[in-house]
Amino acid sequence: MPSIDIAGVTKRYGTDTALEGLDLTVERGEIYGFLGPNGAGKSTTINLVLDFIRPTSGEVRVFDLDAQANALAIRKRTGILPEGVEPYDRLTGRQHVAFAIESKGADDDPDDLIERVGLSADAADKKAGGYSKGMTQRLMLATALVGEPDLLILDEPSTGLDPNGARRMREIIREENDRGATVFFSSHVLGQVEAVCDRIGILRDGHLIAEDTIDGLRDAMPDQTRLRVTLDRVPDDSTAALEAVESIDGVSSVTPEGRTLVVACTDRAKTTVLHTIEEYDVTVEDFTTDESSLEDLFVAYTSDATPAEVAQ
């Protein structure tokens, strides 16, 4: 029995289509990373699972229950960290956790949860209105962990967290998964999911364009590379130069860093990239290539590849 089963779901807002015929299955006990650039439809998908919004067509099932008809039963077994959620300004962090415990009829100790997410006891006694983004994320994670949920849904959980906080988040995700919880979490940064996820789905413009393990995704684009080109100077018409490089077939992203251009592209596009740059009256002083990072892979998937190419 899958934990989440989304079948043929379309969600429209007026004439805008947020999701189009989405099929997505999260198996019980796995950690599923839900990736996509901002605006791809990740939060829409999560909101459908949580019954915050209703599908235009298609079916959403959680624990094999209809997401809308059984929203209450589902939420009793689910821990949620929504994106961009605001705490209640005038309640303390501890009161938030206590409210979640009472709401779920759980018997957790608020202080244990607060300590687990790395929020200090001092901070927990302060009103949440004064919390930083990172403290709010920790607090909301603490409330999501209440009652040992069977399913954890985390929407952009690393938002506002410092590296320590992000690491703590990953540790908790692993611990919860070891306990038996299914974890479904979204991010627009692949680096955050590669370390913990069993499987990854990439969403773009309301379509799931790839779904595989990290290794599987890597294999699907074996010739992806990152080219660092150092020039003697910035070209006079740098905008045109950037556009020219971007438009080369096989190039998925171009990032200028002073006199250096970082180009994510396929192996065979490398020569074309160098030639194109030199057309702008600059000299290539040096260039290096390194193995594709997953970040480049992700960019390649979300900016360049069409669903058909990726599906192969």
């Binding site: 949580l50 915050f52 929203a71 209450l72 939420r75 009793k76 689910t78 949620i80 929504p82 961009g84 959620v85 605001e86 705490p87 209640y88 938030h96 409210f99 979640a100 709401s103 779920k104 909301m140 409330t143 999501a144």
Partner: peptide, 14 residues
């Protein structure tokens, strides 16, 4: 508006 409703409704409340 603030999004705290998502916290509230993320808990088992109709």
């Amino acid at each position: 508006e603030s999004g705290s409703l998502q916290f509230m409704l993320g808990l088992p409340h109709r």
